[in-house]
């Protein structure tokens, strides 16, 4: 059986770097935190890419590594970082919307709303926004397509409500 040659880190980041940076934004509120997360993702990709044999789409492989590294970082944080009920009331250390331009302001509002979502809804929604199908998201997260659809729906309802406030 012939395997696909493993792509280089440079090639993967050229193709998915912007998308990974956006996904990082749903986990980390500050630019420094996002850069650290991206750095960790790049390091994990460097180690994982030699194992890539083309069994799944490269995108699925890359997003799996990214979401797993993000989860791992969450698990290493102080316990209240995972207290999902408390997230809504916690001040977000990101830039204040007033200090941003109109486009960036809207993007930051969306990012803040995404970060307020429960973890799995956030994971699903960040990948929906990247244009992945429910089937691809199911493969990344290890959920059923039905489950992804339910979580995406809940996330959209919640996001709509927060963005209209």
């Amino acid at each position: 059986m012939q395997h696909t040659p493993a792509p280089t880190l440079e090639a993967v980041l050229a193709q998915y770097g912007a998308s990974l940076a956006r996904v990082a934004r749903t986990y980390e509120a500050t630019a420094a935190g996002r850069e650290d997360l991206l750095q960790d993702v790049a390091l994990a990709l460097l180690k994982a890419l030699p194992r890539y044999r083309g069994d799944s789409a490269l995108g699925t492989f890359v997003y799996r590594v990214a979401t797993n590294v993000a989860i791992d970082r969450l698990a290493r944080r102080p316990p209240d970082a995972l207290d999902l009920a408390a997230i809504e009331d916690r001040p977000d250390p990101g830039p204040t919307p007033e200090s941003l331009h109109a486009d960036e302001h809207r993007r930051e509002r969306l990012a803040r709303a995404l970060r307020r979502l429960p973890l799995t809804q956030r994971q699903v929604m960040s990948l929906v926004l990247e244009g992945l199908s429910h089937g691809q998201i199911a493969a990344v997260l290890g959920l059923t397509e039905n489950n992804v659809a339910v979580r995406a729906n809940r996330a959209r309802t919640q996001l709509r409500q927060w963005l209209e406030e």
Partner: peptide, 14 residues
């Protein structure tokens, strides 16, 4: 969501 700034270059550090 997609019209954001380019991502930071992290490959050299990785």
């Amino acid at each position: 969501w997609r019209d954001g700034a380019p991502p930071p270059r992290v490959e050299a550090r990785a």
